[in-house]
């Protein structure tokens, strides 16, 4: 079956979407990411969409569900590399991607994941005291 690969890098999962996804493929990805978070105990998920030339309401909804499901599993999600034309179109479509963190590129996304995980750990330590 056709699948989008999920790479494990350190404590993070990295997904680069390189194809124009049909809806079932997007659903499969959503399930695969959740499984992988549980299996690998990843604390962060980065989804690189720099090669996507279109995000419609379905793909937007999938990004939102990955973000909220990973949050429940104590992992942070960041979506990186959205093309400007895609961002402009999303706004006009009316999709706000609330709850989805975004960063300009992979490096910035990595920084964001690291700092939010450090912050969470600091808070956790404080609560445990």
């Amino acid at each position: 079956m056709e699948r989008i690969p999920i790479l494990k890098m350190g404590g993070f999962l990295l997904i680069t979407i390189q194809v124009d996804m049909h809806d079932r493929l997007a659903m499969t990805l959503q399930n695969d990411v959740t499984d992988m978070i549980v299996k690998t105990r990843a604390r962060g998920v980065m989804i690189d969409i720099s090669m996507l030339d279109m995000v419609d309401s379905f793909i937007g909804r999938m990004l939102g569900s990955i973000a909220s499901m990973s949050r429940i599993l104590d992992a942070e999600t960041v979506v990186v590399g959205m093309q400007p034309a895609v961002a402009i179109t999303l706004v006009e479509l009316g999709l706000s991607l609330t709850g989805v963190r975004t960063a300009l590129n992979v490096d910035k996304g990595m920084e964001l994941l690291r700092s939010s995980i450090e912050r969470k750990e600091a808070n956790g330590a404080f609560v445990r005291d």
Partner: peptide, 17 residues
């Protein structure tokens, strides 16, 4: 333009689905 392409393709995707 790239933005115009993206808009018509996105609209088409919504109506097709």
């Amino acid at each position: 333009s790239l933005v115009d392409q993206t808009k018509i393709v996105t609209a088409a995707s919504e109506l097709g689905r």
